[in-house]
């Protein structure tokens, strides 16, 4: 019963049950974020770097009058950095934190799909070892034999802000 239901969701792509997730590509893997948190998707544009911040914080942009920080997710996950290409996009997300909602952007290789994923179809992530702490993963979902890593973006980005990597002396 459960499987049938889930297949329905997959086929229809949208149903009252389950949450919709926007997925994006990062170094060949597909990651998902809750679509209700996505404010907009925009192309990569010049940013103003913020001094003394970790390299994965690319800088800030002007999003219709508000200053929005942009994070490079590849660098955040310590994946190999690549040159930004035509499919490189910035996903602007609404992040919930202690001080209320903030707007932040993540740079990813490309956006992929929108899927419906049932809460109970999310499997707990095994310990990955190094790159991505399991803290940041809400769960794993399987769709069409593909694995989708559903991220806990609140935790990921809030902790990314706090991370003090700014070494004052570098030379």
């Amino acid at each position: 019963m459960n499987t049938v239901h889930r297949m329905d969701n997959e086929v229809l792509g949208m149903n009252g049950e389950g949450n919709q997730y926007l997925t994006f590509m990062l170094a060949g893997e597909e990651y998902g974020v809750d679509i209700l948190r996505v404010q907009e998707i925009k192309g990569w544009d010049q940013v103003t770097p913020i001094p003394n911040t970790p390299a994965y914080i690319k800088g800030v942009i002007n999003l219709r009058g508000t200053i929005v920080p942009i994070f490079d997710l590849r660098e955040r996950f310590r994946l190999e950095a690549i040159a930004y290409g035509p499919t490189t996009v910035v996903i602007v997300l609404k992040i919930k934190g202690e001080k209320g909602e903030r707007t932040m952007g993540i740079v990813v290789d490309a956006v992929s799909e929108v899927y419906n994923i049932n809460e109970d179809a999310l499997k707990a992530a095994p310990d990955f070892g190094q790159a991505i702490s399991t803290d940041f993963v809400k769960g794993l979902a399987t769709i069409d034999e593909k694995m989708i890593i559903v991220l806990d973006i609140d935790h990921l980005l809030n902790s990314s802000i706090v991370a003090e990597a700014g070494r004052l002396v570098r030379d």
């Binding site: 913020i50 800030v60 200053i67 903030r102 932040m104």
Partner: peptide
């Protein structure tokens, strides 16, 4: 414009 509202104090 505030940097803190979406980011943090630098």
């Amino acid at each position: 414009k505030s940097l803190e509202s979406n980011f943090k104090r630098v």
